[in-house]
Design a protein around this nucleic acid. Structure first.
Length: 577
RNA sequence: GCACCCAUAGUAAAAUGGAUAUUACGUCGGCCUCCGAAGCCGAAGGUCCAGGUUCAAUUCCUGGUGGGUGUACCA
């Protein structure tokens, strides 16, 4: 795999440094950094190495930069570097280097220049994880979409990713559902709209328990019976879980999200008691006030916050389940890393269980990939029990309807089947892009127009750029022919686009460094914008010869990068829109 | 009390410690006899406060202010 410009330039820079008069004064293992220029007026790439070294060497930064530039050999890659501002070294690639690199990328249809990781890991990816018997609401959208996107990126980079939907299929909510099933269930409604019926009884029981304490007690009794293995309750529970999974699967199908496993909480039931016994025996856990706890006395932050793993009544908690889950994932699934895409409010919980796991000698790479909350208009968290939550299915449906309306307006002549497909891709893509294009920790206020916007920096904008690339080949009447001529850049807009496209391999691997899919979204947005500018400046089909071939190649490559990059975000493209 | 997260233009959001803080919506003004105007070009408007580290701070540190969340027996 050919190296990226950033890597090549950094290597040249390192060579130059070693030839400078101060070479033997350099800090050991100093590696100069080269980044894309912030502003194209400064060139294509820039380095701040001279400013960093200036301090070590006790010299003026511009003086250091001058020495480096004089020693720099850019032959075959870039023009003589320029020094600017406080000591930036700016590089401008030669047209030949850009063309050569672009030709390589054009040949690499499968990976678009993106290297596989040198250290492939087995990653268990825990995301989505809705509660059973309740439909997914907008709050689940972040975990589901971010988790799926990160999984796609990690797979493409060469990791073995095992996605596991750790659904809440066991727990106190089943007390209410069992009671409701026995007292309130409408069998015919269960036949026709099972999910809605389950939600209805859950809500009604929830309301009843607040008015009438005896109902609450009865629910608890149902739960105890279930946990004790009562056959009737187990039967209801199984049917309930089964129905819910079918409902969830419909949403995942719509979202194009897949899981390798659905090891829900109930999967770990048999493992909880032995786990607690083991933690007690090893001295990691202790009994306190009747409960089994793990204390973190040595950790100042956690010293007054024990993790409870068995209640004084003998019941287990989600910390217990999560610890058992870690065992399973490491021992049975072979996890080197476990990534949890779970909301920020659970940070303490994950600190605790990661800490317990490490104390048990489990040294997988545990990551809590936290994200902010979706707030209501009152700036409070949208919560299931507050009543007026927005269901995810409704959001997706509305998104498709809105996309459909625009298609009817812009392109009414398309066949019905294609319209339906396009509105699905655009609508679902908009919801996903809205999520993936912002920093995951940011809390945001739920707003239909904001989430379903189809203008500006949105999925349709990116898909539109892709569609434009396809429309050229449709008009041309054939696919891109790599033998159709040679590459020759004749316009600044072509250089800018080729450079941008060549940076795809630089950006993709960085996404996992801090789990920021929004950085990929931002890059793709720049690709689309750069292509639109190219489109305005450079006619393709109206020119001849190598210029035309070059512009076809740029269009082809733009299409590939957009389709592939959007694919990594879990967003599909269409040929027309 | 303790801990964690957040604070950027009228609104919603970007920015591995880098140069003139970037986008979108909205507002104002241009561009379709020309490969798809879901587009392009231009204008106005902003980093909560006070210190500190640094050649360089929206970013890191300390202390405030404001908002959110979590914190022994829900998940």
């Amino acid at each position: 795999m050919p190296e990226t410009f950033a890597v090549l330039l950094a290597a040249r820079l390192r060579d130059a440094l070693s030839r400078c008069a101060f070479a033997n004064e350099l800090p050991v293992d100093f590696t100069p950094q080269v980044d894309p220029a912030q502003n194209r007026q400064f060139g294509d790439y820039q380095s701040n190495a001279a400013m960093i070294l200036a301090k070590e060497l006790r010299r003026n930064p511009r003086e250091v930069a001058t020495m480096v530039v004089e020693a720099f050999d850019g032959s075959g890659l870039c023009a003589a570097p320029e020094i600017a501002g406080p000591g930036f070294i700016n590089f401008r690639l030669t047209g030949e280097a850009l063309q050569a690199r672009f030709a390589e990328l054009l040949d690499d249809e499968e990976r678009l220049g993106v290297a596989r990781t040198d250290v492939p890991k087995t990653v268990v990816l825990d995301f989505s994880a809705p509660n059973v018997a309740k439909p997914m609401h907008v709050g689940h959208i972040r975990s589901t979409i971010i988790g799926d996107g990160l999984g796609r990126i990690a797979r493409f980079l060469g990791h073995r990713v095992i996605s596991d939907n750790h659904i809440g299929d066991w727990g106190t909510q089943f007390g209410m559902i069992l009671w409701g099933w026995k007292h309130l269930l409408d069998e015919s409604a269960l036949e026709t709209t099972p999910i809605a019926e389950l939600l209805r009884i859950y809500r009604e029981v929830n309301a009843l328990t607040k008015e009438d304490e005896t109902v609450l007690d009865s629910c608890k009794a149902e739960l105890v019976a279930l946990q004790g293995g009562d056959a009737e309750n187990l039967g209801i529970w199984e049917r309930c879980v089964d129905l819910s999974k079918k409902g969830l699967q419909q949403i995942y199908d719509l979202l194009d999200v897949r899981f390798d496993h659905w090891y829900g909480e109930s999967f770990y039931n048999e493992r909880l008691a032995p786990l607690v016994d083991d933690l007690l025996a090893s001295g990691i856990a202790e009994v306190s006030e009747g409960a089994v706890c793990v204390f973190f006395r040595e950790d100042e932050k956690l010293s007054d916050k024990p993790a409870i793993i068995r209640k004084s009544d003998g019941g287990f908690l989600y910390a217990t389940t999560d610890l058992a889950t870690i065992d399973f994932r490491i021992q049975e699934l072979g996890a080197d890393a476990i990534w949890y895409v779970v909301g920020a409010p659970q940070q303490l919980h994950f600190e605790q269980i990661f800490s317990v796991a490490r104390r048990r000698g489990q040294h997988a790479d545990f990551r809590h990939i936290a994200f902010g909350s979706i707030l209501g208009k009152d700036r409070k968290m949208l919560k299931t029990r507050s009543g007026d939550t927005v269901q995810l299915a409704d959001v997706l449906e509305e998104a498709v309807v809105r996309a459909r309306a625009i298609i009817e307006e812009k392109n009414p002549g398309l066949p019905e089947e294609e319209k339906a497909e396009i509105s699905r891709v655009i609508g679902i893509g908009s919801v996903k892009y809205a999520e993936l294009s912002q920093y995951r920790m940011t809390d945001y206020i739920f707003d239909w127009d904001n989430m379903l916007s189809l203008k500006g920096n949105t999925a349709p904008y990116l898909i539109n750029a892709y569609v434009r690339t396809r429309s050229i080949f449709r008009k041309l009447g054939s696919d891109f022919d790599s033998e159709g001529g040679s590459l020759v850049f004749t316009d600044e807009a072509e250089n800018a686009l080729a450079l941008k496209l060549s940076q795809y391999p630089e950006i993709v691997p960085t996404i996992l460094e801090d789990f920021r899919p929004n950085a990929l979204a931002a890059y793709l947005y720049e690709v689309a914008t750069t292509y639109h500018q190219f489109w305005e400046a450079c006619p393709v089909l109206k020119v001849e010869g190598d210029v035309r071939h070059t512009r076809l190649a740029l269009s082809e490559m733009t299409g590939r990068v957009l389709r592939h990059g959007l694919g990594l975000l879990g967003i599909r493209t269409t040929e027309r829109m």
